[in-house]
Design a protein around this nucleic acid. Structure first.
Lengths: 344, 344
DNA sequence: GCAATCTTCTAGATCGTTCTAGTCCGCTGT
DNA sequence: ACAGCGGACTAGAACGATCTAGAAGATTGC
């Protein structure tokens, strides 16, 4: 377990000063081509790696991005992984801090600041814009758009995502399309109002069921739908549903499945996030997919811009992953089999 | 955006030297009670927080633990969250680095070393023991037991976990119990041999289906079982199955469910990890639960011991979360309904 | 031929801590 | 009375990098 090499070691090996080695390692101007190569060779032979701690301590710019994420937030894992190459490509390092039931956002943020992060990327922040902008470094709200001029943001265009889902269903022939919303969850309002706008464009009354971000919320919405089904005429019932996210969609599907509905023959369901869950064979949920690489690039760019004093608010277009929870509506299929078939 | 306070600021405010403030902040001996309180009051009024970078740079012991985890590894998220309080209780800070399809273990480890981590906790390492022990700091293998004397480890007692599952099934009245193994996945060998030992104790031939860690692997094992079912007499078929992990169990359940089997009437299934998946209402899988707090505490203790030159190898007992994928065997239920009922 | 300029390089200060090696002071024991 | 001791405190070096200011040598301008 030998000690790691320092700038001074490399300098001695190459026969130059420490300052010059620093210049070469940073790729800064001020070194001739030949010495540059000599220094790099010496560094390589000593297996030199700059010490992040010392670099952070001294330099005004630390080039370290702090990322606050949820340990099991939907889509967070894909995004975190995409952030590493995106940051590296722009000359940043990345350090992570997890938020969770036992560790809140401000605590996670503080520990990143102590490590010297010069900007923070907060994935789906749950603090207020005031609290975020009070931090002593620029903050980028990722996955949640922000209008606050003191913050930056990089998020998916939720209106476009809802539109993709609705247009997919319309293209399949669905005419009555409902939305199960996200309650008071982050992003719920944007998706709900986008849905309402689309329905209005079509001249229809928007059909929105109250929901939420969790499986349980989806199950509640499904029970509401079943109750409605017992009262209304089939022509008024939706044949396609866009659910707030995959978790809720899963609960929604579960209740309808045990009630005997056939998916997608009786009802087409679209989720949101294209999470691991949606891809399971057992679930196979058509879902709106957010683009992790584009979001990561936009987030890092926003951080870089914020460090130069400019605020950026980027919206990234989503795509749609079609699986087997959506299909053409089969008119009247429910009547032929009775309203509450007791599937077992 | 005012600059953050330093030791010197606190020292000036309290009318003492920087060194004494340092002593007080670290809780080190060498300060009288009255000045200690005066310094703490000054620090609080200035909202002083020690700068991790400078502290790391100067002190031999950095008290920083680096954690390498999988962005979507089963159980990793729970464990990561449990690590924060466990480390804090022992005077360590935690910093994370994600491993994933696009970022390998050694790269993740290197970035932690550059930040000054004095020991590494690697969750379910995929490098060889040689590679891990070649790192210049102590390494703790978490979730995977190690026999290598150069490493430490903190893992769940897989033999006990398999025993819990098997005994649960036996207690329900199951006599023929099978295992779907994890193929070449981490931990598969331990669980398979534990299962074989239990079967041998019972005087039975161990019934092991080749599987793997993924949903697809579980689906394959289920098809093997269905093929066997078409050939054998019912008395020879298993009524209970212990699957390598929850992901595989999910695929296993999916194929059997679409083939018309009733779970748990026809077959009881136990998973492993008690992941978020298992808890979904849609799945409701009985599963072996690993204890995140106990594992986190053992892992941090192992790191602390390793820093003192001692190696520790801890096994933590698991528990069983019983859900609705297991129940009493209903003798002959399959015969009365035919072998391949076409459920829909 | 001499000053001005550019390029290449270096010495030394600096970031905010911790650590080492003291100083100062009051107390004790003989 | 004086060495010895331990508790409270401090000055200044150190950690490993970056940054500022400036020196040495080559090149250019007039």
């Amino acid at each position: 377990m030998t000690k790691r090499a320092t700038l001074a070691d490399v300098a001695a090996a190459a026969g130059v000063s420490r300052a010059l080695v620093s210049i070469v390692m940073r790729g800064a101007p001020g070194a001739s081509k030949v010495t540059r190569e000599r220094v790099l060779a010496a560094a390589a032979s000593l297996d030199y790696r700059p010490d992040t701690r010392a670099r952070l301590l001294r330099s005004a710019r630390s080039h370290l991005l702090g990322v606050v994420f949820d340990v099991d937030g939907p889509f967070h894992s894909e995004l975190v992984e995409a952030l590493y190459p995106a940051a590296a490509a722009r000359g940043f390092d990345v350090t992570l801090s997890a938020r969770g039931p036992r560790r809140d956002e401000s605590e996670a943020a503080r520990s990143l600041l102590d490590l010297g992060a010069e900007a923070l990327l907060v994935l789906a922040p749950d603090s207020t814009p005031e609290a975020l902008s009070a931090l002593p470094v620029p903050v980028v709200s990722v996955l949640q758009p922000q209008s606050d001029p003191r913050l930056s943001s990089a998020a998916t265009d939720d209106a476009a995502g809802i539109a993709l889902a609705v247009e997919h269903l319309r293209g399949l022939g669905h005419r009555r399309i409902a939305h199960v919303d996200g309650g008071r969850a982050v992003g719920s309002e944007a998706r709900r109002s986008a849905f309402a706008r689309l329905a209005a464009d079509d001249g229809a009354e928007p059909l929105v069921f109250p929901g939420g971000p969790s499986e349980t919320d989806g199950m509640g919405a499904a029970r509401t739908l079943l109750a409605l089904q017992a009262l209304s005429s089939p022509a008024e019932l939706p044949t396609g549903v866009v659910v707030f996210n995959d978790d809720a969609a899963l609960g929604f599907l579960h209740v309808l499945g045990t009630a005997g509905l056939d998916i997608p023959a009786d009802l087409s369901v679209v989720g949101y996030d294209d999470s691991r869950l949606a891809a399971l064979a057992h679930v196979s949920l058509t879902s709106v997919r957010q683009d992790p690489d584009a979001l990561a690039a936009a987030a890092v760019d926003a951080a870089a811009a914020a460090l130069d004093g400019r605020r950026a608010h980027t919206l990234v277009p989503p795509s749609l992953t079609v699986r087997s929870s959506t299909g053409r509506p089969t008119a009247g299929s429910r009547e032929t089999r009775g309203r509450h078939p007791s599937g077992s």
